[in-house]
């Protein structure tokens, strides 16, 4: 791949669960299990999956906001797993994150000016005298203006506040932004405003986005490529259109068929998957999807399929597809 900004190889995140009071035995869960993928510069890479699939954990690991249990992770050819905290701090200027709910990720006691200025102050980017001007430039990029500078978060709507979070993420001129469900808390009419804004910014500033969402319609709209996760594993990677028009993995197919589309169709039956989502703490043997897969074969219960390239830029982890 030309000029990758992120190269992740077999990365794993294990969380220790507290054992019983008397038992020495420690339990652990693998929230992300041997995930490998590349993201090239200026690309929007979408991560989709249901709750507990590890997509948010993976997002945090890419910025090393969570340590990696094993595997290797390179950002601009720098090995993130070997950096000291001082080096990491410098590097973080190039990588930023926007969360789902700005009300819980930004301080309710700071004015918009101070929220956006904070990273500029921490990294000594702009002198205090020019701060208002600098912040105003950033606010302008996200469609806010002078009148918002001295407001407190509770004086703004959800959409406006998410714009503030985006302005703050842009403050240090990063090359990579992880967007973790950035529009999930918003109403559809406002969601469309924010998505349009993100698309504009990404193109104008040639940013790389990791776009994490459970909403497949949104991910499909914004992403160049998509990775589909299930129980800590990447099960399919491919170009956005291809994954949507011709999903290969049975889970991707089921996921797409489950979305109720806002159209009256002749066939009003939604296709449903049977069964519950298994717990990551105790994933099924073999292929993790075999308990719910409509086309399961005996091999699926025994051996775990690997993520294999089926064409250029298309990877699938399924015994049926590979054979």
């Amino acid at each position: 791949m030309p000029n990758p900004i992120i190269v992740a190889k077999d990365i794993v995140k294990e969380f220790q669960l507290p054992g019983g009071w008397l038992s020495r035995k420690k339990h652990s869960i693998r929230a992300v299990d041997q995930v490998s993928f590349d993201v090239s510069r200026g690309e929007v890479f979408g991560l989709v999956g249901e709750s507990g699939c590890g997509k948010s954990t993976l997002g945090l690991m890419l910025l090393r906001l969570l340590d990696i249990t094993s595997g290797s992770l390179f950002f601009n050819s720098i090995d993130l797993t070997r950096l000291t905290s001082a080096e990491l701090r410098q590097l973080r200027r190039q990588m930023q994150i926007v969360f789902q709910n700005p009300n819980s990720s930004l301080s309710p006691r700071l004015k918009v000016l101070d929220i956006v200025a904070e990273p500029l102050r921490t990294h000594h980017i702009a002198p205090e005298k020019q701060m208002r001007e600098q912040v105003l430039l950033l606010l302008d990029q996200v469609g806010l203006g002078k009148q918002h500078l001295d407001r407190f978060p509770h004086e703004m709507s959800g959409g406006q506040y998410q714009r503030v979070a985006i302005a703050r993420a842009l403050a240090l001129n990063p090359s990579l932004i992880v967007l973790d469900e950035p529009t999930s808390a918003l109403d559809v009419s406002v969601q469309a405003q924010i998505i349009n804004l993100l698309v504009d910014l990404q193109q104008k500033l040639n940013l790389t986005f990791i776009f994490i969402s459970h909403d497949l319609n949104v991910v499909q709209h914004i992403s160049d490529r998509i990775g589909v996760m299930y129980l800590g594993k990447l099960v399919e990677i491919g170009k956005s259109e291809e994954v949507f028009m011709q999903p290969l993995h049975p889970y991707t197919k089921a996921l797409l068929a489950s979305i109720p589309q806002p159209k009256i169709g002749k066939d009003k039956e939604l296709k449903t998957l049977k069964g519950q989502i298994p717990s990551v703490a105790n994933p099924p043997s073999g292929c993790r999807f075999h308990t719910r897969c409509p086309s399961v074969i005996s091999k699926c219960k025994l051996s775990e399929p690997e993520l294999i390239a089926v064409s250029i830029d298309r990877f699938v982890a399924c015994h049926l597809v590979v054979e």
């Binding site: 469309a192 998505i195 349009n196 499909q220 949507f244």
Partner: peptide
């Protein structure tokens, strides 16, 4: 305002304001 399959590359028609 809802993104639909195949909407990639087009702008979503957002409703302005709140």
């Amino acid at each position: 305002a809802i993104p639909a399959p195949g909407s990639r590359g087009n702008r979503l028609s957002a409703i302005p304001g709140n």
